[in-house]
Design a protein around this nucleic acid. Sequence first.
DNA 1: TTATCTGCAAACATTTTGCAGCGAG
DNA 2: CTCGCTGCAAAATGTTTGCAGATAA
Lengths: 135, 135
Amino acid sequence: MIGQRVTRQRTAVAALLDELDEFRSAQQVHALLVGRGEPVGLATVYRTLGAMAEAGELDSLRTDSGESLYRRCERPGHHHHHLVCRRCGRTVEIQGTHLEALVDSIAAEHGYTDINHTFELFGTCSPCATSSSPP
Amino acid sequence: MIGQRVTRQRTAVAALLDELDEFRSAQQVHALLVGRGEPVGLATVYRTLGAMAEAGELDSLRTDSGESLYRRCERPGHHHHHLVCRRCGRTVEIQGTHLEALVDSIAAEHGYTDINHTFELFGTCSPCATSSSPP
DNA sequence: TTATCTGCAAACATTTTGCAGCGAG
DNA sequence: CTCGCTGCAAAATGTTTGCAGATAA
């Protein structure tokens, strides 16, 4: 990586993610930007989100339906998992100390190495549980 | 569901999964069946695997690249997770007692309800770790 | 200037679906 | 005989890529 250029589009994506606290898909990010009068190509959004996630600036996860969601990391580089409201996207970061220990012991027990784990929780947050209006 | 018909295609899919012990994608199942001279349409394989998974006869998971994999359940209806060799597909079923408890406490702590969790482990099994030949 | 980025449209990969005909019960 | 199942091909999704022109540095 010789140089990364600061373009209007990247700035817009980063700024949007800064205001948002919830996980969003590339398509949502694109729609939001276009909606607020920031013309950005969908491909650019995909490329930008992918690069930011790669660089550890974003957390990413995949929904059950196979969509990738992104949001700004609270603590870049720090390993954790998420509890995401499937209705509004409100997210809680989970520090997985117990979990990591569990993963290690399971892997060791069965002789598997180079382990990579996924752990995500989807639920309904209490505000969403009481309101009946759609997302 | 009034009636489920036993067709040659469904029998073939079920029989193949009975012999296999590893997770396979719909496309792999289709290729294997066609390869052994059992003409089955790809759409039929998708429909059959989907229905079997729905009925709790198959375990399913999604790879990092978003593909769905299936395999026959060892214990139908019994909740568990998997430790899958990313090289050869060899799979160990994990009973997640500790995990379920952890999930429940995390959810309760943050007031989320109707929780749904994903937990999958991918690694390299010891036979694959020692052999250097590709899958 | 010039290498990187962008936008568009086309390509991709996986999965789903509409529909006419087939076949299990 | 009927209604569910199948195969095909088309459509839907979500994401990636090739390329010519725009642009940051």
